[in-house]
Design a protein around this nucleic acid. Structure first.
Length: 411
RNA sequence: CGGGGUGUGGCCUAGUUGGCUUAGGGCGUCUGGUUUGGGACCAGAAGAUCCUGGGUUCGAAUCCCAGCACCCCGACCA
């Protein structure tokens, strides 16, 4: 991608009013634009990062048997009334359509997935199943805050699993936990992310959250360092020790919830009449679980964890581009020629390169913007480097510069 | 939803004991020129419902009332 073709531009000044790092940095570097509190446009750079996060989530869900689908955002009132949530779900956006129809905007999709699966599940042979989607969700929060961390419109992957009995759900639930940790590992968050016991769904004693330690978080958790699990403050009065080892020396930390999974049991299969015939020919309730993770919130969290005074430092796997290639202006046509050649070569090899080919932009400005955008590698070509048939390589995360022969560049 | 803060060209802001403001500066933008290894410089130009509505006054960005928006704390977060 040529930077001269970008319609977005990084700005020098930080947005006033914003205090959270993710909002400040993402807006300043041109990843997102704020439309209203908790409502953002994703610009080319931001969309790329978001897509990469989605792709990681997608791969890990597919790996445990998930199948991607897409459900609607407009969900009829009648569906919500079946489970009683039209009245009780306080963050549901309710809106009126023409002809007296009413709708809730999708905040979560049990009310759609359950009747959907009813059309396909009739026998124990149809189980288990684990459809999921990655979709924009809407929640009418009283207070949006902290940039992408808590929005009124945000992206969420929601998977729903369907089982013949509790044991099958329990087994899959453990597999899902592992898959989640694989996601956090790929995002560079696994060392500071804890499986956290939180208040239960409607069926089980606890639900499980995945909490990433950060000052930008809004939850308080108590961690057991030995077992690498935690307890959410909301249940600390009933559970004062580590649920795994009984350790009472728990450490209080601030964290952001980056995932939440529930054992739903028959909370939703019951009202929708989702049943199957077992081996004996008897009708049984389908046992359900659900598994949420928010790519947009993850994106905000990752910025909170990965920035310095100059800007964002993206982990390699989700950086908008792997390499930020800066061409220094020169009177010699050779610099431009060699730069174009290298850009084309790298691109052909499949390396994602952001090529700063802008003219009349000072060197300082190019460097400052590269630091702001935060690609993992910075490559500079100039008269100086070409004199040695080299380019200069620098990692965003450290200070050392390295001269590398053009013929030996590898990513 | 309770409390606090903020609101001035696209962005950051000065001005806020009413008059010296035909609202000043910086960034960005446009034109011309000089520059090019850390947000470089010179000259010129365009660009403003001073959040909105009402009020007080000879006169309001500035005072009063009402509302809106954003940020923060808290509450809330199947």
């Amino acid at each position: 991608m040529r930077q001269s073709k970008f319609f977005t531009k990084a700005v020098k000044e930080l947005p006033k009013d914003e205090t959270s790092f993710n909002a400040k940095e993402l807006i300043r570097a041109g990843f997102v634009d704020k439309v209203a509190a908790g409502i953002y446009s994703f610009l080319p750079l931001g969309l790329k990062v978001h897509e990469k996060i989605c792709q990681i989530v997608r791969e890990e869900m597919d790996a445990i048997g998930g199948q991607e689908i897409s459900m609607p955002t407009l969900i009829p009132k009648e569906s919500w009334e079946t489970t009683g949530r039209w009245k009780s779900f306080d963050v549901l956006f309710r809106l009126a359509g023409a002809d007296k129809k009413e709708y809730g905007l999708g905040a979560t999709h049990e009310e759609v997935i359950t009747p959907l699966m009813k059309k396909f599940i009739s026998s124990y042979k149809d189980l288990p199943a684990a459809p999921y989607q990655i979709k924009t969700k809407f929640r009418n929060e009283l207070r949006a805050k902290a940039g992408l961390i808590r929005g009124r419109e945000f992206s969420m992957k929601d998977m729903y699993s369907f089982h013949k009995d509790q044991k099958d759900l329990d087994d899959f639930y453990e597999v899902a936990i592992e898959a989640y940790f694989k996601i956090y590992k790929r995002l560079g968050l696994e060392k500071i992310t804890y499986l956290t016991y939180a208040s239960g769904g409607s069926f089980s004693k606890y639900s499980h959250e995945f909490q990433t330690l950060t000052e930008a978080g809004e939850d308080i958790i108590y961690i057991c360092e030995k077992c690498r699990v935690a307890i959410n403050k909301e249940i600390i009065s009933e559970q004062k020790s580590c649920p795994k080892c009984g350790n009472k020396n728990l450490i209080e930390k601030k964290a952001v919830e980056v995932g939440n999974i529930f054992k739903l049991g028959n909370r939703f299969s019951k009202p929708f009449g989702l049943v199957y015939m077992d081996e004996k020919g008897e009708k049984q309730d389908v046992v359900m679980g659900c598994y949420g993770i928010g790519p947009s919130r993850l994106m905000g969290t990752i910025v909170e964890m990965n920035h310095d005074e100059r800007g964002i430092v993206w982990p390699e796997e989700i950086a908008p581009f792997k390499v930020h290639f800066i061409e220094m202006k020169s009177k010699e046509a050779k610099v431009r020629q060699e730069a174009e050649k290298l850009y084309n070569d790298l691109t052909k090899k499949g390396v994602e390169v952001l090529y700063d080919d802008r003219e009349n932009v000072s060197a300082g400005e190019k460097f400052a913007e590269a630091d702001l955008i935060g690609c993992p590698y910075r490559l500079v070509i100039s008269e100086k480097t070409l004199a040695e048939n080299c380019v200069e390589l620098k990692k965003r995360s450290d200070k050392e510069l390295k001269m590398v022969k053009i013929s030996e560049i590898k990513f």
